[in-house]
Structures are given as C-alpha cells and as structure tokens.
Design a binder for these strands. Structure first.
Lengths: 340, 340
DNA sequence: ATGAAAGCGCTAACAT
DNA sequence: ATGTTAGCGCTTTCAT
C-alpha cells in the first residue's frame, strides 16, 4: 500500500475556500444560514480536494450516530436477509444506516456482537428473537435507545417486539391438519439448539393436537444446512421407519420441498395419502412441480415495522403495548387435501 | 423510552475503582502492564457499573477503526450472503468487524454507500465487482486502506481483486457445449443492467462459440427476481418460440432449476435432446430430481481471501500482482450428455 | 451570515 | 506499574 496520507480535515477545506471551519461544517451538513456564494465556494473546494468528512469526530462532538445495529443468527438462512431487506427499504428514506452482525445461533457470540455494536452508540438495535443472555438483556435495557426484537412475539421483550407468534403458527397448522382428516403426523425439525422459533412451532403443533384424535408418531432432527437433499434424506428415512404416517410437518420450506420431490418420485399420492407442509412461504420455491403448503413468516413486514420503530415513525396503539403481532397467512398449496 | 441517562465514561469507572482513567483504559484494552490486583478491581468496577466503552471516542483518539466496509448489490441473491459468510469466517479470528451495505445494483447508490462508509474511516473495503463510478474509484483509491474487489477479475481493480473470471467461465462452458455435440443454443439471462458478471459470462460464451459450428439462436432476459417460476416461464416461452434448440444456458442456477423441472414434466429427454446448464453451484439445489450442470462461482472462497487481504494475513506471490483468480470447477451434473 | 472557543470520551506519548 | 498532558476532528454554543 502507498503510505497513508494524513487525512484531509475541515481545516483543509476551510483554507482552500477562505472561510472558517465552522462555515464549512455548516455547508457540508446543510445547516444554518449560509449565503449561496459561500456555499458554492465551499462545495467546490470540498469536491476539488476529495474531502470525506470524518463521522467519528462528528459523532463524538454531536453525540449522534446514525447507525442501527442489526443482529441475526445467520445470513445463509434466507429469512434473515429478507427481514433485512424490509428494514433497509424503510431506513433508506431516513439518515439511518444498518450495521449487520451474525451470531451463528450462538447466544454468547450474540452477546459479544451486541457489546461491540453498543460501543458504537447506535441509534437503535434490531435483533432477531426474544432469547438472549441475561447480560445481553441488561445491555439492551441500559442502552437508552429503541431495541426491537423481531420475528417472534412469544416471550417478554426488552423494549419492543415485532413478528408472528410461532407457537400460534404451529397451533393453527395443527387445526388445519385435524380439519383435513390426517391422523398420524411425523415432524422433521432441526438440531440447532438456538432455533427457538422452530422449537416453538413444534410446541404449538403439539399443543394444538393434544386432545384430538391426531397423534405425532415420529420425529427426526437434522444437523447442518437446510436444503432439498436434507429433506429427501430425512423423508426417506422417516417413511422407512414409520410407514403408516399420513402427514409430514417440516420446520422449513426447503426441507419440505426436498420431501415433496422425493414423494413425487416415489409415486406417493401427495396430499391425498400423505400431506406435507413446510414453513416460511419462500417465493423462491414458486414453480415446484406442486405448491407446498406453508405458513408465511412475515419476515419482510417485520423488518419494515422494526425500521419504523427505530426511526420513530411508528405509531403505537394503546393495546399494542410495544408489541406488534403479525398474522401469518396459511398458504394451503397443493400438498394437503381439502377439509373434510 | 426512559429519558436517556447520560453515558457512563471511563471517569466513572476510574472513580469507582480508585485508579486513573489511563489505568482503566489499559485494563479494558488488555494493554501495557497492569498488576493483577488493579486489573481485577477495575474489571469488577466496570462490570458493576455496566460500563460499555465508547468506541467513537476511542477511534478518534487512536485513529484506528476495526470496521471493514462491505458493499454488495443485494442481500436477497444468495451469492452475496455466501461471500459474506466466507469473509466473516476469516474476520472472526481478528478484531475486524464487517459493516454491510447493499446497493440494489445501482452504482449511484453504491457511491453514496461508499462515501458513507469511508466517512467512518474503516480499516478496509470489500466491494463486489469491478464496475464503479469514477467518483467511487477515486474515493477508494484515495482512502489509504486496502480495497478488495471481489467476485470478478475481468477488469482493472483499484487496488486488489479476488474472484473468478466470468468471461472465462462462459468461454469454458462454450467448450463443454461444443465437446458434447450440442448445436443450437438459447440463453436465458437477466435484464438487470448492473449485473456485469452475468453479462461477461454471456460474452465469454459467445466468444467461445465463435468460429465453431454451434450457434446461439435465441436469447431472452427476464426482469425481477430469479426463482423456479421464472425459469419455467422463460423456458416454456423460449421452447415455444424456438423449438429446435438443443441447449439452454441460464445465467443463474435457480432459473436453470425451474427450466429443468419444466422440461422433466414435459417429458423432454434432458441431457440427450436438450442440454441445460446454470451458474453458481448452489448446494441448496442438491436434491433436485436431476443434478443441474453448473459452474462453481467460488464466492465463499473469494470472501475468505478478501478477509485475509484486509486483515493483512494474505501473502501475495509476485505474479499475482494483487489479483487472485480463482479457478471455477465445471460441475457436469446430469443435464448434459457426455463428450462425443 | 460568519467566527471563536470549548469540549465530546478516549488514547499516544511521555513522565515517574 | 501507574499517572499526566495533550489532542484526535468535529459540532455546540455563544458572539459579532
């Protein structure tokens, strides 16, 4: 690398333009009264020099930082980038900028990332889920800025929460399964300890089936990355082990889609003899040989609302109590029979 | 929100622990010689108060910022999160933290994002692609920090470049098409202007076919998001319009997979009568009814190497000249016949 | 409409 | 091993 030139400062622009540093600062931030002539002189000088303001100094002096810390478990799982897209969509109209960190579903890494982010004094925090270490909760509570926990509302938020109830999503899926006359359910889930949302969906499903004539007869969890191959593999193994299943509930659309492809190849009458359902509502999957039944996780909408909350443009209604529960649509697709 | 408490400073910790601010600073940063007794006193005081250091002040004083700006066109297109995952994997072992911005394939937005990021004086920049505005190039060149342009090497980097040659990937695909005896090729691409990598792959393909007995007989570009549905739709339309095609080249695995599903349903002898190939090598797709031929884009590896470059732990060999060209593997899958 | 002075919270450099 | 001093580059506040 070329030896690092010492950085250009306001002083350099001020000298080049022949006005005080304060006036340069005003022009560059569009604040206060500056004559047109001065403004142009300053802008020309800044452009000519290639001046880039130092936000670190600015933030220290003004005690204002236009960053929003965003903490998600993973960027490889599409749901989180999609939530982020909703957030960015809203923040784009404000001075706020998201700073993203991922935790790999590890609460200790989450705590470290949070500490790191708070040390930059962001204007807000958006964080996935309601499960955090005690230290993380204390830091967020003490930060003095809006904290929005997204993509889940089943629990007590530090400050605000936006998302769907995964427990309810599982519960309602149970209702659909019962209404459509399935009797013997298998569950394909994940081994990831930190995936509390998947856990809650399954708990909701169990609760919804309790006291009905529908039973959960098998369950298998996989480790590692969700994909079609994993869905095939898990489905094959489960149908081998428990051949009298008539419904498979996957905690993820991608494994569900893999299961669907497997069943179609095996000539299984999907829907009639074996119902299948996933979760998330990935539009990526539109175009499968058959549309998989699923429940929309409203992740993009959650991101949008979180953005409004940190930007201060969200209006709370009384009953909401700093909690926005989104209503997930059940998308029946063509892998479940109709109600009986 | 509770009214914002004025923030805790080193001074508060220093008073609580009964040592100078400087000593507190040393303990908190693990620098210099501090006695065990003092260290523990300070750590206890900091923990008891819930002190979170102010990195803004620290960065201003030390002229050191442990942030790496990462700029990608999109987070919804899986290749970019995957590159990021490789980058994070490497940065996790260093004090550096990525800060991500996305540009929606808009070079002016890229320029604004870059300006914003440079104003935080990051320790490095990782940016997708080699096409930028003149102002962006000037800013990066003048930043005085390592700048790594990733996921493409076809062009002149500002500082360093890591990735595959998309032109070569297209060129080599042409060789495979010729070797396997296909004659009439259709291309399914995208309308996104800013996707220079897709453009280069197609240019490479055209160049590779020039002078052979293989001709490109049709081409269609889609707008909007890549998914299975789009691949089906484009494939149906193209086969309708140009029924004598014997090969379809997709610029993306997802549309390719949609095309594959469509062809299988129509009873087309995929491979024998109609060859198909995509691009990227998404492992997500393992488990399709048939494995799609594709070329690995080495995005994760590019992220890893970019991480080593900004962290200063990458050793350049002379001939590389601050450019690392990765060699993309051709993955034949089962949608192309064998060489003739 | 413009300028001068003070200081944001921390760390480098130099004492002791 | 610990403390003192000066200042990072900007913005706030108050003057003119």
């Amino acid at each position: 690398m070329a030896p690092r030139r010492s950085q250009l400062t306001l002083r350099d622009v001020s000298e080049a333009a022949g006005v005080s540093e304060m006036t340069v600062s005003r022009v560059l931030r569009d604040r206060g009264d500056v004559s047109d002539a001065t403004r142009e002189k300053v802008q020309a000088a800044a452009r000519a020099l290639g001046y880039v303001p130092n936000k670190i100094a600015g933030a220290l002096a003004s005690q204002r930082v236009n960053l929003v810390g965003v903490i998600v478990p993973s960027l490889s799982n599409l749901v989180f980038p999609e939530m982020l897209a909703g957030l960015e969509e809203v923040l784009d109209g404000t001075p706020l900028q998201p700073v993203v960190g991922s935790t790999e579903y590890d609460l200790d890494k989450e705590e470290r990332t949070l500490f790191e982010m708070l040390s930059w004094r962001p204007s807000g925090i958006v964080i996935a889920g309601l499960e955090h270490t005690e230290a993380s909760r204390a830091m967020m509570a003490g930060s003095g800025v809006p904290v929005v926990e997204v993509m889940d509302v089943d629990g007590v938020p530090v400050d605000a929460a936006v998302g769907i109830s995964h427990r309810r999503a599982g519960y309602e899926m149970a209702g659909e399964i019962v209404a459509r006359g399935y009797k013997r359910v298998g569950i394909v889930g994940t081994k990831v300890d930190g995936d509390h949302r998947a856990r809650k969906r399954i708990e909701g499903l169990e609760e919804g089936l309790r006291g009905t004539n529908v039973v959960i007869v098998d369950r298998a969890d996989y480790a590692g990355w969700s994909g079609f191959a994993k869905g095939r593999e898990m489905t094959a193994a489960m149908l081998e082990r428990t051949p009298d299943l008539d419904f498979l509930y996957y905690t993820n659309d991608l494994t569900g889609a893999g299961g669907l492809l497997y069943c179609l190849e095996k000539g299984i009458e999907v829907g009639r003899d074996l119902g299948l359902a996933g979760f998330n509502g990935f539009s990526l999957l539109d175009g499968l040989p058959r549309k998989l039944a699923t429940v929309d996780s409203c992740r993009r909408e959650a991101g949008r609302i979180a953005g409004r909350i940190v930007a201060g443009t969200w209006t709370w209604t009384d009953e909401e109590d700093r909690r926005v529960e989104l209503t997930p649509a059940f998308l029946p697709g063509h892998t479940m029979r109709s109600s009986v």
